[in-house]
Amino acid sequence: MNAFRLLADLTHLLSIIILLVKIRTTKSCAGISLKTQDLYVLVFISRYLDLFTRPLSLYNTPFKLVFLATSITIVYYMRYHKVVKQTYNKDSDTFKHYFLILPCAVLAFFINPKFTFIEVLWSFSIYLEAVAILPQLVLLQSSSNIDNLTGNYVFMLGAYRALYLLNWIYRFFAEDVVRWIPWIAGLVQTALYADFFYYYIKSWRNNERLKLP
C-alpha cells in the first residue's frame, strides 16, 4: 500500500459518493449516462468475482463491496426510481456501448495473465473500465449546461486512475512490480479524459460554466 494508491481509491469512492449525492438530493440524473453506469456494474462484477475465491482483505474487501453496491444502486435509481428515471437523458445517451463489450471480451480472451475464468474476466474488466467513460463523455458534449456535481463526478473518476498510474510508477521502482495489462489500460483510460480535464480546469480557473465543444 502507498499514498498514491490510498488517495486513488479514496478519490474513486468520492466520485461515486458525489454521484449518489447528486441523484439523491436533486432526484435527478440529468447529464449522467446510464450506459456508462451499466458498464461500471459489469466492470465491478467481472473484476470482483475473487471476493468468493480469494482470502478477504481488510482493505480491498470493503471497497469491493461498496463499489459493487453503489454502482448497482445507481443503475437501479436511473432505471426504476419513478422520479429519477424521468430525468434520464435517454435520447442524448446514444453511444453504442454494446460495441465496447465484445472487443474487450475478445481482447481479454487473447491477452490475459493466465487463461482461467477469473483471470480472463479480470482482464475483461480492466479493458472495459478503460473505455466505460466514453458514453458519459459523449453525453457531456451534447449537454448544453453541465451541472457542477456531474462535472466533479467525471473529474474525480478520471483523477482516480491517473493516481493509480502514479501508484504503479511508485510500485515499479519501490517493489519492482510490473503489470502490463492495467498499466496500458490505465494509460488509455486516463488519456480519454485529457480533453475533459483541460476544459474542466479551464472552467474552474476562469470560474465559468463547464462546456465541452
Binding site: 481509491d9 471497497f63 490475459n112 495473465p113 483471470e119 501508484n167 512490480v177 503489470r179 495489462i181
Partner: peptide, 10 residues
C-alpha cells in the same frame, strides 16, 4: 505475461 497472479489492487 505478469509476474504475480494475485490482484491486490481494486
Amino acid at each position: 505475461m505478469e509476474k504475480e497472479r494475485v490482484h491486490d489492487e481494486l
